[in-house]
Nucleic acid binder design. Structure first.
Lengths: 229, 229
DNA sequence: CCAAAAGTGTTTCACTTACACCCATGA
DNA sequence: TCATGGGTGTAAGTGAAACACTTTTGG
């Protein structure tokens, strides 16, 4: 930091890996580029950082502008700075990731020129730049994180069944979990409140509904409690 | 990424949090600034990224230039982008951290103008910019990481006693560990080779010496083995 | 023989894992 | 009555944590 301030400056961008969850699938939000390079290719939403905003703000703003998705909690992932990652000139990109409820963020039918869409993990198109690498890192981080932070709960309806919650974790982790063990574990955490209510209009025995007991969770988090699935 | 490429560009820097370990202490490598702002204050080594180098390369280069420390494994920590973190103009900084053996990196008596020195964690001077925040984050990350990666072994002499190794972990984690459990654990990992040698010239029963069995460790790492202290 | 650290095992407890059957409901 | 998922308990194994005394050496 003790140098002069005259330097060739790389451009600074942010990119967002937004995972969307519905009952079946884990998806990623992509946009279709309309400019070169990689015109027509799918890419992560993102763009350049403005002079007066934090990196977090830039990520949120670009995400909103390009996809209409707002009010998400973005977490910084990693900064990619390979000089050749943009074929034209140097662009350093700070990557963010988030996990949201798909039903809260239906993409509006492309009213503006640019298309945005949710793609299933595992059915991804070729991506622009090094975005595939960014996405892979984000997925690994998400799967690591979900095991010791109760991320998923916010992604369900207020009232949900344990099976629903289990499916959520299985979707994110991409592997099956044992039903009895899952229930033991998650109920043992004490952060679910059992409701006097069950599913309705299902062609089978209706499941008991629960809600996330945020108050208890916060308290436990304060006391250094370790969440783990 | 679909915008035009004309933007006011923040300057891009890297900063390095280098932890040094000796038998007693965990220290951090700091340099004394000779320029405004914060002239005379201590700061993390770092500087601006050049046009043709990766971020990792920039961090290594700056660290070498400012402190003489080289051949360390730097890991990216976090990117700090608050518009006001530099009082003059906007500087976004990608922070790195590393853990090295203190005895390998004695700082040469300041032959050039700028001073570099190791400071004990817990006896830190006031730091320039937001470097205190960066340092705190790095320490938290180090303490988290050391528990599931055998970072520390490289920091000891080739031959070392188990007590020495335990002190190392206690120093980094800043808490005492149980002797018997520690030995059970670390020997159970199978990555230490027992030598036919003991300490010499100690005024007590001499301890058996071990060496880090890197070959076995690499093999286990390949097989998805999980290290944990 | 004294000081100082080296070295050593066992028990308890908590948690993870594997595993199979009956139940309630709507169609 | 059938199909569908809802709901439940136990046993075995693994690993973490707590804990105290004897041994060896140099001075």
């Amino acid at each position: 930091m003790a140098h002069t301030y005259a330097h060739p400056r790389p451009a600074l961008a942010v990119d967002c890996v937004v995972f969307g969850l519905d009952d079946q699938d884990l998806k990623v939000l992509l946009i279709q580029r309309d400019l070169e390079p990689f015109a027509g290719r799918w890419a992560l939403p993102g763009g350049f950082v403005r002079g007066d905003e934090t990196l977090d703000q830039a990520a949120l703003r670009e995400l909103g502008e390009e996809t209409g998705v707002s009010r998400v909690y973005l977490e910084q992932l990693y900064t990619f700075g390979d000089p050749a990652r943009d074929p034209r000139e140097r662009v350093v990109s700070v990557a963010y990731y988030a996990l949201v409820r798909l039903s809260d963020h239906r993409i509006q039918a492309a009213t503006d020129a640019r298309a945005a869409a949710w793609y299933r993990i595992g059915e991804l198109p070729a991506l622009a730049f090094d975005h595939r690498r960014i996405l892979d890192l984000a997925l690994a981080r998400l799967q690591g994180k979900v095991r010791y932070q109760p991320i998923g709960f916010e992604l369900l309806p207020t009232k949900f069944s344990l099976t629903r919650l289990q499916r959520l974790y299985e979707t994110v982790l991409e592997r099956p979990l044992d039903k009895r063990n899952f229930r033991k574990k998650v109920l043992g955490l004490g952060i679910l409140a059992e409701l006097d209510e069950v599913e309705r209009d299902v062609p089978r025995r209706p499941a008991r509904l629960y809600r996330f007991d945020e108050k208890t969770y916060r308290q436990q988090a304060r006391d250094g409690f370790l969440f783990e699935i």
